[in-house]
Structures are given as structure tokens and as C-alpha cells.
Nucleic acid binder design. Structure first.
Lengths: 122, 122
DNA sequence: ACCCATAATGAAAATGGTTGTCATTTTCAT
DNA sequence: ATGAAAATGACAACCATTTTCATTATGGGT
């Protein structure tokens, strides 16, 4: 029976495309006339993380954000002043993360990377 | 005046040696007859992070943990399970950030990058 | 079809780390 | 010493997440 909520949540994550917090996901799902409780969203996310269908990360403020596992991910170049965001290729980073992790005996390696600065317009 | 609490907190971090949460730090400090409030510990940690004297990371449950920051700019490889941390050289990243930023007309470029995984012992 | 055990659901309350409030205290320059 | 400004800390507010618990759906055995 958890199957149903799990697939709703997966659908939500697909719709969102990138990262989403549990609460955002709950909003999105209910906005689209999917009636699902916040508790259930949390439980579905937890079980999806357990079965490694979903990645969990932490924002700087500690809030958990989730994304589909294996979704191609990119990095962001964000303007500290106006918030303008550019998507960046990160092939170098993937390799760096993989290699650094492996060298130190780590497995299940993931990473986060953001670049920030002031854009030309600001 | 924040100087005093900041140095108390720094002393606490030295005594602890590695990572400590704000609450642990508060306990340690008061156990050692340093009278300091929890609020002040949080504020001191925040300002130390701002002035880059202290690193902040997140445990898996989202709790913030802090430690003294070495002078050299490095990145971290963190075990998602036990919190073990390895410092990583990030020369590649610096270049990647600089270049990606410049290509898009950004200035004052900074970046964050963390690698995480499961360490050999876990 | 009909029970019934079991799992799933979600509203509401509890938890716990973190941050905001504000009255009080300390510091420092004059 | 005195007043302004910064610092402090007890307490309350906040908010993401978890727990509780009563209700509802599911599905296998008869």
C-alpha cells in the first residue's frame, strides 16, 4: 500500500525536475489535486531513500532536500545580489569527487558544488 | 565584546579537538566552569563561521556541527554514516569555479564543494 | 462475498535544534 | 563617573521532522 504514495511522490519529484524539500513536494502534490498528507510524504521519501531510489541532501540551513537518484545533475552559478542562476557543466567535478572518494576508500560517493559571485548586470 | 564569547567558544573547540555541535559545546564549556549561555554559543559560532575561523557541516540528521578551520582552503570528504572527515585538495575546483564564473561575466567568485559517501569502516 | 489481520494513512501533538526577543549587564570613549 | 552602544542570556517563538493514535484501505483465507 505504500506503493501508491511512493509513486505519487516519485511523480512529484519528476515533475519538479531537481531538488525539492518534503514540504515543497507536499505543496506541489496537493496543488495538483493529489490528496496526500505531509506525514505520508515524509514516510514515502524515507522509504525511497532507503531503497536508494532517491538522494537526500541538506541545504545550508539544515533542511533536507531530495531528488531522483540518477537524474543528471548540473551545478549552479548564482548571483549573490540578484539571484540570477546559470547552469554549469560539472564533468570535472564528477571526476574529482569520484576519484577523491575512491582514493580514501569511500563508496556511494556523491557531491555538492555551487559557485556564487556577482553577475555582470549587478 | 563578542570577543570574549568568541574566544571561549574557540577554546572549547580546541579542547574538543574535532567536531562539536552547538549544544555539545555549550555543555563542555559550562562543565568547565565557563558560564556561557546557549544563545551566546550559537551567536559566537555564527560569527566565527562568518569570519571563516570555523567550519560548519551538517550531520545526517541535519544538526549543525562545527570545528576549527585550518588556514588552507580545503574541501571535505564526509562519511554520511559516521561523520568521519577527510580533507581534500581542491585545486581543480578553484580553477573550475574561477573559469565558469569568468565565462559568464561574474566577479567576486566563490564556491562551495563537499563530497560525501560511506567510509571503509562503515 | 465476507471476515479479519495487517499495513497504510493523515491530523494533531510532541520533539528538538535553532533563531528571535528583550530586559539587563558590560565595555569603552569621553 | 556617565551615557551610548554592544554583548549577554533566559525565555519564547519557529519550523522541519517524527511520533501517536484513531481511522481506513488492502488482500488473503474461508
Amino acid at each position: 500500500m505504500s506503493k501508491k504514495s511512493n509513486s505519487k511522490v516519485l511523480a512529484g519529484l519528476e515533475r519538479v525536475g531537481g531538488f525539492a524539500s518534503a514540504q515543497e513536494l507536499h505543496l506541489v502534490l496537493n496543488r495538483d489535486s493529489e490528496s496526500i498528507g505531509l506525514t505520508t510524504v515524509y514516510r514515502a521519501l524515507q522509504s525511497l531513500v532507503d531503497e536508494k531510489a532517491v538522494d537526500i541532501l541538506r541545504k545550508e540551513d539544515g533542511e533536507a532536500i531530495f531528488r531522483l537518484c540518477g537524474a543528471t545533475h548540473h551545478h549552479h552559478l548564482v548571483c549573490k545580489s540578484c539571484g540570477k542562476t546559470v547552469e554549469i557543466e560539472g564533468g570535472v567535478i564528477e571526476k574529482w569527487a569520484e576519484q577523491s572518494g575512491a582514493e580514501n576508500g569511500f563508496r556511494d560517493i556523491g557531491h555538492t558544488a555551487e559557485i556564487f559571485g556577482i553577475c555582470a548586470a549587478c
